[in-house]
Measured scan of single mutants.
Amino acid sequence: RELEAFAERFKQRRIKLGVTQADVGAALANLKIPGVGSLSQSTICRFESLTLSHNNMIALKPVLQAWLEEAE
């Protein structure tokens, strides 16, 4: 499924970029996305391991996609 594929791609790109899960969480606050502050390292970890609820995964995907586009 698309969500699982994105989570895997996100993790691979993050590692290639040399960015930690905690760095991603902190950097999200800098994107100034309305309603989104920083996220914890454990939230990023749970996203990558697909252990968040489906609704949370869907909500976080565009936020993490925005970070990925900014980071690349």
Rank of each mutant, 00 (worst) to 15 (best):
N56S: 15
S49A: 14
R13K: 13
K16I: 08
G25M: 06
F47I: 01
E48G: 11
P34W: 02
P34G: 05
L60G: 02
R14W: 00
Q12A: 13
E69S: 11
L31S: 10
R9C: 09
N56W: 15
S40D: 14
A22Y: 10
E70N: 15
V63F: 08
A29D: 06
S42F: 07
R13V: 13
R46F: 03
G35L: 04
G25H: 06
K32Y: 09
R14K: 01
L17E: 01
Q12Y: 15
I33Y: 10
V19A: 07
A66L: 12
E69R: 11
P34F: 03
E70D: 09
A26Y: 09
R13H: 15
Q21P: 06
A71N: 12
G18D: 03
L68D: 01
I58Q: 11
I33F: 07
N56P: 02
V63R: 08
E2Y: 02
A7S: 07
E70H: 13
G35C: 03
L68C: 06
R14F: 00
E8A: 14
S53R: 06
E8L: 13
K61F: 04
L64D: 01
A5V: 12
S53T: 07
G18W: 00
P62D: 04
W67H: 01
T43F: 04
A27M: 08
L31K: 14
N30V: 08
E72A: 05
E8R: 12
G18Q: 07
A27S: 07
I58T: 12
M57I: 05
N30Q: 13
V24L: 09
V19D: 08
L60P: 00
C45Y: 13
A7G: 02
I44T: 10
Q65R: 06
P34V: 06
L68A: 05
I33L: 15
E69I: 10
E72V: 06
R1L: 09
G25N: 00
L39D: 05
Q12V: 09
C45K: 15
E72C: 08
N30G: 11
A59L: 04
S38M: 13
I15G: 04
S40Y: 04
V24A: 09
T43Q: 10
V63L: 06
R46C: 04
R13G: 14
E72L: 04
A22E: 12
A7W: 01
